[in-house]
Amino acid sequence: MKLALYLTFPYPDRETFSTFFGEMIRMRFDYLELGIPTGTPYYDGPIIRRTHRKAMEGFSFSFLKEIVNVSRLAGKKNYALVYYNHFHSSTGKFLDDLKEAGIDGAIVPDLLTDYYDERRQLSEEMKKRDLSLIPFFTSSTPDSAIREMTLLTDSWIYHGLQPSTGIRVPVSIDLMVSRIRKLCNDREIIFGFGINSMEMVRELRAEGADGIAVGSSLVSYMDSNDRQGFRSEIEMLGDAVYD
């Protein structure tokens, strides 16, 4: 299995972010997901929403480039998690800036729900710049949309388990994994949104997930400046994922 780690960029400020990123980058994981802060992170829960508000001040593409550079040298793949409503009015320029910062691709959680008619156009724009569009699916994405987006893209796939990040309503993980697997065949599928226990990681592993993405559960360590706790959380996730 693969491990994807999410940080809102640069939460809470550049200095603290750099410190925790420095801890993280020495550890084992595969994908770095950087949340581009926006005023309307609709599909994030309260924890990540708060990080967006706080991170807005410190955001710049030049700082993003610095961080991504370090991450690339450490052998990680780097993705932006960005809402389409954030760059909808300046798509070309925004994608150019992402590319210039060394980003490999982007997860756009509101593309299919709020901008469905623009999915092909965005996919084209990203292809032109050699950026991967990571399809983002949830339990409410219809089969036809999953099939089409799977054909339009060739990257890994992100599947949200919960209606938003960092919350936990009852879901049938087994049904969710088997459904998406059947629709996407052998594509790599990473599951995220609401993974907050090792038990959940083990269940996903047993059901055949290719990887997990974790974000909300790292925020509290940054808030309490607990570098030790932050490291051991990532280590534990790594143990569950890579064992």
Partner: peptide
Amino acid sequence: PDLPEPLPPARD
């Protein structure tokens, strides 16, 4: 799963 486009999810 059979809708012609994704159902916009519940929002906080």
